[in-house]
C-alpha cells in the first residue's frame, strides 16, 4: 500500500479520535497532553512527507527549491509545536501567558519560507503557460476571496488593535499573524483553484493537498490568535482539528509528490 494511502487512513483515524476526544472532554491533564501531543505528531508527519518530496527530486532545480522552502517552513512549525508542548506538558506553563512566546517566533519565521515556496510554485505554473481557467472565474474568485479575507481580518484584527490592554509587541505579532496568514491564503487558494481546473491530473494532486493543508493551518492560526487575545481559547478547542488536519494534508501532498516523481 503506498505511503500516501497509509497516511490517508492515519489521517481519518486521527481526526476521528481528535473529534471524539475533544467531545468527551476528559478531566485533568489528559486534555492538555492530547491537545499538545497531536499537533507535534501531525507536524512530524508533515515534516516526513515534505522531506520525502524534497529527496525525490534528485538534482537541484526550482521545483526542488520550492519544496525545500516548504520543508523549512514545516520544520519551523514542528519546532513551534514542540516548544508549545514542552512548555505546557513538562514545565506546566500556560502558552497564553506572556504572548508572544518562543514558539510564536518559530511560527512567524515559518511563514516566510512557506510563502516563498508557494509563490515559486505559482510562478512556475505561470511560466509553464498552462491555463488559469476563464478570466471571469479567476477575477470573481480573486475578488470574492479578497472580500472574505478582508472582512474576516478587519473584524478580528481591529478589535485587537483597539484594545488598550494589549501591548505593542503583542499587537505587532497579531498583525504579523493576520498579514502572514492572508499572504499565504492567496497563493494557496490559487493552487487549489489551479488543481480544480484539471481534476483528473495526478500531476496536480500534490499541490491540491499541500495548499488545502496550508489553508487549514492559516485558518487555525488566525482564529487562534483572536481567541487567545480574547481569552476564550483553551486546550480541546475544536479549532485544533483544523490545525492537525492541515499538517496531515501537507504530509499527503508531499507523499503524492514523491509518488508522482517515482512513477515517471
Amino acid at each position: 500500500m503506498p505511503a500516501s494511502q497509509r497516511t490517508w487512513i492515519f489521517t481519518i483515524a486521527l481526526i476521528i479520535f481528535n473529534i471524539l476526544f475533544f467531545w468527551i472532554k476528559p478531566e485533568g491533564k489528559a486534555m492538555t497532553i492530547v491537545s499538545d501531543i497531536l499537533p507535534i505528531l501531525c507536524a512530524l508527519v508533515a515534516l516526513g512527507g515534505t522531506a520525502l518530496a524534497v529527496r525525490s527530486f534528485g538534482t537541484g532545480n526550482r521545483a526542488r527549491l520550492a519544496w525545500i522552502l516548504l520543508l523549512t517552513g514545516v520544520t519551523l512549525f514542528f519546532c513551534a509545536e514542540t516548544i508549545n508542548g514542552f512548555l505546557e506538558i513538562i514545565l506546566n506553563g500556560d502558552v497564553n501567558d506572556g504572548f508572544p512566546i518562543l514558539a510564536d517566533y518559530f511560527r512567524m519565521t515559518a511563514y516566510i519560507p512557506v510563502l516563498a515556496g508557494l509563490l515559486m510554485l505559482v510562478f512556475g505554473y505561470k511560466k509553464s503557460r498552462f491555463s488559469f481557467g476563464s478570466k471571469r472565474n479567476f477575477i470573481f474568485g480573486l475578488l470574492g476571496l479578497s472580500l472574505i479575507a478582508f472582512t474576516f481580518v478587519h473584524q478580528l484584527l481591529l478589535s485587537i488593535l483597539r484594545d488598550a490592554d494589549t501591548g505593542n509587541l503583542a499587537k505587532s505579532v497579531y498583525i504579523y499573524y493576520f498579514a502572514g496568514g492572508l499572504l499565504i491564503t492567496f497563493p494557496a487558494a490559487l493552487l487549489v483553484y489551479i488543481s480544480s481546473l484539471y481534476k483528473k491530473a495526478w500531476i496536480l494532486s500534490p499541490w491540491r493537498y499541500l495548499a488545502m493543508g496550508l489553508l487549514c493551518l492559516t485558518i487555525f492560526t488566525i482564529e487562534h490568535s483572536y481567541l487567545s487575545w480574547n481569552n476564550t481559547y483553551g486546550s480541546g478547542n475544536f479549532l485544533e482539528v483544523f490545525r492537525n488536519l492541515g499538517y496531515l494534508l501537507v504530509a499527503i501532498g508531499g507523499l503524492y509528490q514523491k509518488e508522482l516523481i517515482e512513477s515517471v
Binding site: F57, G58, T59, N61, A63, R64, S128, I203, L260, V264
Partner: peptide, 16 residues
C-alpha cells in the same frame, strides 16, 4: 519538458 519541470523537477521532466 519545460512546461512540466515545476511539477516533476528537471530529471523526471527530461525523462518524460
Amino acid at each position: 519538458e519545460r512546461a512540466v519541470i515545476i511539477f516533476l523537477g528537471s530529471d523526471k521532466a527530461k525523462e518524460l
